[in-house]
Simulated assay, not measured.
Amino acid sequence: MIDWGKVTELVADVGADGFDEVLTLFLQEVETALQTIALAEDLEAALHFVKGCALNLGFEDFARCCAEGEALAARGRPDEVDLETLHRIYWQSRALFLSEVRERIAA
């Protein structure tokens, strides 16, 4: 669900303080995007943005779900994008991430 190697690389690149800022920004941006994604004029672009955010922080399953939705939207089938599953996977990933991140990056 989480690519902890990616998280470790990010911490090494930006430092612990920088990581906290990146994490806060990520959570804010993704949660804001998810609140309005169903209303997005360009669902493909909205999912592409969220997917990029997810990949940067190692949210693998969530990024995969975004990529699947992005591909559907690109093929002109945005009504087939399962936004409920997208939300569920994000919140599951978020819960796992926040419950383990301090222990994982301290190791």
Rank of each mutant, 00 (worst) to 15 (best):
M1F: 13
I2A: 07
D3W: 04
T8S: 15
E9C: 13
E9W: 09
L10N: 03
L10S: 05
A12N: 11
D13N: 10
V14S: 06
V14K: 04
G15N: 08
A16P: 08
A16D: 13
A16N: 06
G18K: 15
F19N: 02
D20H: 13
D20V: 15
L23S: 14
T24Q: 14
T24V: 06
L25S: 13
F26Q: 01
E29I: 06
E31K: 02
E31F: 03
T32W: 04
A33L: 08
A33C: 09
Q35M: 12
T36I: 11
T36G: 15
I37G: 02
A38P: 11
A38M: 10
A40Q: 02
E41K: 08
E41C: 10
E41P: 06
L43C: 03
E44K: 14
E44M: 10
H48A: 01
H48L: 01
V50F: 03
G52V: 03
C53A: 14
A54Y: 02
N56F: 07
L57M: 11
G58C: 04
G58F: 00
E60D: 08
D61E: 14
F62Y: 12
F62L: 03
F62G: 02
R64N: 13
R64Q: 08
C65W: 01
C65N: 05
C66S: 04
A67M: 15
E68C: 04
E68Y: 06
E68G: 14
E70S: 09
E70T: 07
L72Y: 05
A73V: 05
A73K: 01
R77T: 07
R77H: 11
R77E: 04
P78Y: 02
P78T: 03
P78A: 08
E80N: 04
V81Q: 00
L86C: 11
R88L: 12
I89Q: 01
I89Y: 00
S93A: 04
A95L: 11
A95D: 12
L96G: 09
F97A: 02
F97L: 10
L98S: 07
S99R: 10
E100Y: 05
R104T: 10
I105N: 02
